[in-house]
Amino acid sequence: MSTMLHAIYTPYHRISSKIELLHPLATLLSRLYIAKVFFVAGWLKIQDWDTTLFLFEEEYQVPFLPFELAAYLGTAGELVLPILLALGLASRFAALGLSVVNIVAVISLAEIAPAALYLHMIWGILLAHIVIYGGGFFSTDRFLTPQNNAS
């Protein structure tokens, strides 16, 4: 039985190890995708600040914060953290910060469309991956870690 299992598992393992080579690229693409989503949202907010303030006052129900402070903090987070994430600089910190922005966005809307909620869940999963595993091979973090600088 174990020889048969081994005969089946060996090709699987060979293929699996080849697929693992895509992990750094998948992490980079995840970082860039999430960074674009949040940066564009922040950019749109600063393009029409009066509307942004109105939405934070009337539409979004951000808990525990005055609407103006919530607007400034949310917009700043959506503009600064995606840049860090795209560069892979302090990737875990940036992903954690964007996770907070993502969660606040979901809970601050009284009604959220199922499709929008689904997107926020996907973004949350991608951000959780970066928080847990880091920015990956193609990140500034990798080049700034001490073991990579020791020669």
Rank of each mutant, 00 (worst) to 15 (best):
A105L: 06
L79P: 03
A150Y: 14
A71N: 09
I103F: 15
F143L: 13
R92A: 09
T27Y: 00
T52L: 00
L22K: 02
S91T: 14
P82N: 08
A110Y: 08
T75N: 01
A70F: 05
L98F: 08
I130W: 01
K36D: 12
M4F: 11
E78N: 11
A70K: 00
H120C: 04
V40K: 07
F39L: 13
Y60R: 11
V40T: 15
L32D: 06
P114F: 09
I19C: 11
M4K: 07
H129T: 10
N148C: 06
A41I: 01
A35K: 02
P24R: 03
L79H: 04
L55G: 00
L32G: 05
A35C: 07
H120Y: 10
S30D: 12
L85I: 05
L69E: 10
P24W: 04
L117E: 09
A113V: 03
I8H: 09
L5Q: 14
T140A: 14
A7Y: 11
A35V: 06
V80N: 00
M1S: 12
A35R: 02
D141P: 10
V101Y: 05
L89H: 07
N148Q: 13
F39T: 03
F38E: 01
F67S: 15
S151K: 13
G136D: 08
I130H: 03
P24S: 05
P146V: 07
E68S: 13
L65R: 03
